[in-house]
């Protein structure tokens, strides 16, 4: 009921803001729908937008289950992208992709590790540390792309383009419709993480730490280790997202290649509620709005309007859904 109310509220809010912006809501909404799911190519575009959001959503979701708010997914994504691109270029061929994804995972995981350690052993807040790590990641990769990893022919901060054998092809291609391999990996990751969290002992212990660290400690859970592990895994998944983004879509790493997917992923994970499978729906909605929002530009409406509405919906959602956890008791 609450979710339905939220969706209705979001739609009303959206229509109201369209009116304020001086657009015809009917045209705009139909444009939004056509632009995101109205044709085979629109659906493909939505899936392309959805792919990094889904995988990054899993990353943030996993950390959230351990009671950690990983604002650093963006930085881990960028680090994963950058190092996997360099690896794929260095090794080449299909093997380069496999090793590249692995390196992307390790790089993303290691990038998140300091935040995990600081949280576990010094109780320093992960929101602060991961934001700082984002700043470092973005500038470090910028330097790498304009220096050590710079492509020979590149004019700006960018690596070379992957050779054709290292570019992931769509798994299915029917006319204008494409199903990228990366989204399949994302779906498998979601299912895997969902299973791990709900059915295994280590997943159970991770959730216990997130839900009540003191009770978890009394139950014999090594809460510090779990915190570090959760942060590493979350970073590694974000790194995989970054690597797949290069192999499947971008084919090179360049400064600014992420348009803030890591931040959108916070919304994706929050909107999924407590359920891993909710990530499919929430990443699809975000992907569709990203894609469809672009097509609103033709009507003279800024794409930002969808971002804005979504942000308001998430704030309300967070206030409703997480009020007991975050709210004050008694």
């Amino acid at each position: 009921m609450k979710v339905l109310g939220l969706i209705a509220g979001g739609i009303i809010l959206f229509i109201a803001s369209l009116l304020v912006a001086g657009a015809n809501p009917v045209t705009a909404v139909s444009q939004l729908i056509t632009g995101s799911v109205g044709s085979a190519s629109a659906v493909s575009g939505t899936i392309r937008e959805m792919t990094p959001l889904l995988i990054l959503g899993v990353s943030v979701f996993l950390a959230l289950k351990a009671g950690l708010f990983n604002i650093g997914a963006e930085g881990q994504f960028v680090i994963g992208s950058c190092f996997s691109a360099a690896t794929m270029l260095a090794i080449g061929g299909p093997l380069g992709v496999v090793v590249g994804v692995l390196i992307g995972a390790i790089a993303g995981g290691l990038w998140a590790l300091p935040a995990g350690y600081v949280k576990a052993f010094r109780n320093g807040h992960e929101v602060i540390t991961t934001i700082m790590l984002n700043n470092i990641a973005i500038n470090l990769t910028k330097w790498l792309a304009s220096g050590p990893f710079k492509g020979e022919k590149a004019v700006s901060a960018s690596t070379a383009t992957l050779p054709i054998q290292s570019q992931l092809t769509p798994l299915i291609k029917v006319g204008q419709f494409e199903l990228p391999q990366a989204v399949v990996v994302g779906i498998l990751l979601t299912l895997g993480v969902g299973y791990w969290l709900s059915k295994t002992t280590s997943g159970y212990e991770l959730r216990a730490v997130g839900a009540n660290p003191t009770a978890a400690e009394f139950a014999g859970v090594k809460t510090k280790q779990v915190t570090v592990k959760a942060m590493f895994l979350s970073g590694a998944i974000a790194g995989i997202a970054g690597a797949l983004q290069i192999a499947q879509f971008e084919h090179r790493f360049y400064d600014g290649s992420s348009i803030g997917y890591g931040f959108d992923a916070l919304g994706v994970a929050l909107l999924a509620g407590g359920n891993a499978f909710g990530l499919f729906a929430s990443s699809f909605i975000f992907g569709a709005l990203n894609k469809g929002g672009t097509s609103l530009m033709g009507l003279g409406i800024d794409k930002g309007i969808t971002t804005m509405v979504l942000a308001i919906v998430i704030i309300i959602f967070a206030a409703v859904k997480y009020r007991q956890k975050g709210g004050q008791h008694d």
Binding site: K199, T201, Y204, E205, A211, N212, A215, G220, Q324, K325
Partner: peptide
Amino acid sequence: HHEGVIEDWSLFENASLGLQRLPEFSDIS
């Protein structure tokens, strides 16, 4: 409240809290 249970969890899930590493819970569900 703080040391013994996880209030958001079901009674089923709380049943294994603290015993999750024992052979009886090798298949936790």
